[in-house]
Amino acid sequence: MTAHRSVQGARGVRHLIEDVQRFGLFSAATVVDRYTAMVDRAIVDDRLASPPSSWDGLDPGSLVDRAARLGEAYLRFLETTAVIASRAGGGEPRPEMETLVLPPARPAGSSETSLWIHNPTSAVSTGMEVAVTGLISSNPATIPAEAVWVSPQSVDRLDPSTSREIRLRIDVPRDQPAGLYFGLVLISEFPGDPVSLVLKVEGVEEATS
């Protein structure tokens, strides 16, 4: 049973998550793309049902609504935090995990945001490590983990009722295809409970319009 137990440890779970992220979810995204093309060919009148594919044809009211909704979502995501207390004791991972949305960026640009770790417990938390996976999209394309900058990468000590800011920056490679990219922030304190990372890489037309 040793192998089984070993994957339950923090490091094992982290590697497990990274493996799933790297191999499984990438494969899943490509399956979706393959079937999207297939179903469009098979059900030929699909285009009759398609709504406008761009902002064209939307009335001003819906544009305002959409902008307000995006703004609200953006603020909410910026406030995304990792709270130690709610996950103390090795709580089970949650599929409806928190999501951190970075500001959109264009190729050769960068996007930066903060993640706050709070310790509202009465105990000192020590030796936390923070890691970020590479990002994947359904294009399929990836942004390698080397393009992600995290500071600090470890928090030696977090006293009770204190917080620590973690800065994240993604340097988008020059030839990166446009699309929505997904990654994970992994914090050793709660290894099975990562924070989802979302970055929109804009195409040239979007960035200049």
Partner: peptide, 27 residues
């Protein structure tokens, strides 16, 4: 399957896919 972490792998895979589903729902 337990000794080699295969069940744990599948459980995490399901959670990973579910996370993707949560993002895809928003879209």
């Amino acid at each position: 399957m337990q000794d080699h972490g295969s069940v744990a792998f599948a459980e995490e895979f399901a959670r990973g896919i579910a996370r993707s589903a949560a993002v895809a729902f928003d879209e």
